[in-house]
Amino acid sequence: MLHIWGIEMKTILETLLIGVSSGSIYSLMALALVLVWRSTRVVNFAQAGQAIISTYIGYESMKHLHSYWYSVLVAIVAGAILGAAVEAFVMRPLAKRVRGSAAADIAPVIATLGILGLIRGVAGLIWGNTFVQYTSPLSGKGYTFGSTTIQFSPQNAAIVIGAALVMAAFAIIFNFTKLGLALRASSFQPEISRLAGIRVDRIRVIGWACAGAAGAVAGALVTPTAYLSPNSLDLLLVSGFVAAVIGGLDSLVGAGIGGVVLGIGFAFILQYIGASVTFLAAFIILIFVLLVKPAGIMGKSGGRSA
């Protein structure tokens, strides 16, 4: 076995792979937060709740579809619809009411917290607070090379590939389509966009829908490696937020990188220090990034492109 400075190479590689896998999930969550932030300048604390409901819907649909992959698609559609509904029925009316008032910053944040609580409660009412298992046909057992088995399973690989596909899809949509142009324009300058004929309200709903879809992918992919319960994705919200801030909150690429960086960081902390300090570490990383480089790693001036 290969050792460097007394640390086993296999463990390092394994930790790295696991970090990339969980980091991909953080990236998706961060992506969802960034999409909403860019469309309406709100940090959507309900994102974890939306992802939970979408995942439960995926889980239910699997009972009828008998296919994990189709059920993931159902979850994605559900996530998109839910995201759109939250924006259209709660956030937009609220934004109209508080525009220009002292509560303009705080009220939307509080509303998303309320939605998170509501969703968790409704999920509990429907599915109970017990853990359920949403299984994928892919094995959760690690890959084996010769005589050694590593902790990285086909489902972990699916997570990484799935996240990469979603990221690529959004990169293409944002940079090469009319919709992407409208999304970017509306997020940078809503008023000018309106004066160019863009239906900004609709574009915002689409932004929330995209975010909901990204969150649903995260939920549906990560759940087979763990369990599903009304608050099983709460911690993902915190990780996603930290990842998004590391990446600069405004940058899709930054969200991707921020997630993976955080995932790897967490994996090493977990491996060498212990699970209970990970979120304190997240807090410290967050403070550090915010105080040292408030615009995030991708947030140099003029770097606000998609």
Binding site: V43, F45, D105, V109, V238, F241, L249, F279, L286, L290
Partner: peptide, 11 residues
């Protein structure tokens, strides 16, 4: 400010 403080205290 605003969302950053909310997120940091959340962590």
């Amino acid at each position: 400010s605003g969302p950053y403080l909310a997120g940091t205290t959340l962590a």
